[in-house]
Amino acid sequence: MSPRVRMFLAVAGAVAFSAAFVAIVMAKEEFTLDSFPIHVLPDVVAADGDRIDGIFRGIFWLTMAIFVAVEAVLLFFLFRYARGAEPRKAHFSHGNNTIEIVWTIVPALICLVISLASKSVWSDVKQAKPAELKNPFVVDVSGRQFEWRIRYPNAKAVQGESYDAIMKRFARTDERWITKGVDNLFGIDEDDPEARDDIQTIGTLYVPVNRPVVVKLRSQDVLHSFFLPHFRVKQDAVPGWTIDVFFTPTKEGEWEIACAELCGQNHTNMSGKIIVLSDAELEKRLKKLLGE
């Protein structure tokens, strides 16, 4: 058998063997081809999510093209230059400086383009200035083993208030006053007049649709990561720091909050809900929470 035929059989055999293995697993677990989704990126329901996905897709097609080209050239060389029955000397070459320069500069340029495209999205998403946002909705979120604690400054969801004005509606807190129970999740100073209308809950975050949301993210114990897969939001919560997280929901509905940074025994279960509502619905919901 010539080495080329053998190579072909090896590749074909590997593909057939893999397919047979997958078929056996599918038969055993009663899977169908539909059990294996390929278009897996979760639906996007936030304003900058599409831009992030755009870069993802751009890199995907670019890396796919390079991947296919590299593997195809590799396989072609293996077929083309497999040692035959009568070995000859190989082509004697130590390389070529021109081609080295070409394949140094081209990848460098590609990387530069990806960097520049990424930079603008990154700055818009992570470096927003909250004071400049129009009609912001501000909410205080704190990670704690193993729950997401949420605080609203009051039961209002009206538009037109500035970020600075909203921030004054939050009552003073001191983390030393955080109790273990549910009474004082954030360590609110009960003597502060603003404390009367602060709303504290666990696990479910209500936000308005089509308005920029500012999450004041903190942690009360270990690192957590506030992950909203459908909003393309992820930010670690760091004890001792308050980090601003920005996103603008574009669709009403209910989605999941996950913790993406290992935080201990029940890390897996540190999930929550994010519910996007119209301003009017949101205000109704917040008033109900305040009443409770």
């Binding site: 080495p3 053998r6 190579m7 590299v70 050239v73 590799l74 060389f77 293996l78 230059y81 497999a82 040692r83 070995p87 000859r88 000397k89 190989a90 082509h91 070459s93 390389g95 070529n96 081609i99 080295e100 394949w103 140094t104 990848p107 460098a108 590609i110 990387c111 530069l112 990806i114 960097s115």
Partner: peptide, 25 residues
Amino acid sequence: MFIAVPSAIKTFNWLGTLWGGQIQF
């Protein structure tokens, strides 16, 4: 990103090594 550059150089040079070879598997 620029780490991709030397990594690419290495990959291309490995391919270049195979080009015109007498490959034994």
